[in-house]
Amino acid sequence: MPRSGMEARRRLQQAALELFRERGFDQTTTAEIAARAGVNERTYFRHFADKREVLFDGEDDLRASLTRAVAEAPDGLQPFEVLLHAFQETGRALEANRPFAEPRFEVIAATPALRERELAKHASLTDVVAEALRRRDVPDRLAGLAARTGWATYRQAVQAWTEDPEQGLDAHLSQAFDDLRGLSTTTPPMTADRET
């Protein structure tokens, strides 16, 4: 994409985020986003298929990054360690983009149509992660389970990171995966009324 096209795309994303926060997603039109960004509405639709998509740009890049990070993880790692490695690698872009990412999360959380789109995107990315694990010879059943569990753990870490910016995303990812390992190895306590 030419430099001017990338700049217009960035301005559209920033304008959309500002307007969604000021007025709400449903009350904002693509024409208003375009005007705020200093372009016409046709330019908006050259970059984004619809109003929701402006907040979900970069999915293709994330797919490619996740696939590559899983493939390039060191040999001998268990699936969860592979995923931790991959999420730490790809999380650097999210961390670098925190000034946009954090308010974006808030807008999505407050908007049912955006939450629905986010869930669909996450399902698609989970499938990508599962396929990348299969390519590392993780059995199909385990690849799917690891991908779904790993993605949920990643989302937990991202949420913790937005609430506690004092620690980097890497630290939150490590903690979340440590918690996951702890959950899978801890013996549940016996209930007091259980018969022996």
Rank of each mutant, 00 (worst) to 15 (best):
R3K: 11
S4R: 14
G5M: 04
G5N: 04
M6N: 15
A8E: 15
R9D: 11
R10T: 14
R11K: 11
Q13S: 12
Q13F: 00
Q14I: 15
A15R: 11
A16M: 13
L17F: 09
E18G: 12
R21W: 07
E22L: 11
G24H: 10
Q27P: 07
T29Y: 08
T29A: 12
A31T: 12
A31S: 15
A31W: 11
I33F: 09
A35R: 04
R36K: 14
A37D: 04
A37K: 00
G38V: 03
V39N: 03
N40A: 05
N40R: 06
E41R: 13
R42F: 00
T43P: 07
T43E: 02
T43K: 01
Y44L: 10
Y44D: 00
F45D: 04
R46A: 15
H47V: 07
F48M: 05
F48A: 02
F48G: 05
A49Q: 11
D50H: 10
K51C: 09
R52F: 05
E53W: 05
E53S: 14
D57T: 12
D57P: 07
D57E: 15
G58M: 09
D60G: 15
D61N: 14
R63K: 14
R63G: 04
A64W: 05
A64S: 12
S65L: 15
S65A: 13
S65R: 14
L66M: 11
L66Y: 13
T67Y: 07
A69L: 09
A71C: 09
E72M: 13
A73F: 01
A73L: 04
A73W: 01
G76P: 08
L77G: 04
L77F: 02
L77E: 02
F80W: 12
E81T: 13
E81A: 14
E81L: 12
L83F: 08
L83C: 02
L84E: 07
F87T: 00
Q88D: 02
E89F: 01
E89A: 06
T90A: 11
G91K: 00
G91F: 01
L94D: 02
E95K: 07
N97G: 01
A101M: 15
E102A: 12
P103M: 07
P103Q: 10
V107K: 00
I108P: 07
A110T: 00
T111N: 00
P112N: 12
P112M: 09
L114I: 08
R115L: 01
L119M: 10
L125Q: 10
L125M: 15
T126L: 05
T126E: 05
T126W: 05
D127P: 01
V129A: 05
E131H: 00
L133N: 01
R134I: 02
D137C: 02
D137T: 06
D140L: 08
D140N: 01
L142A: 14
L142H: 11
A143E: 06
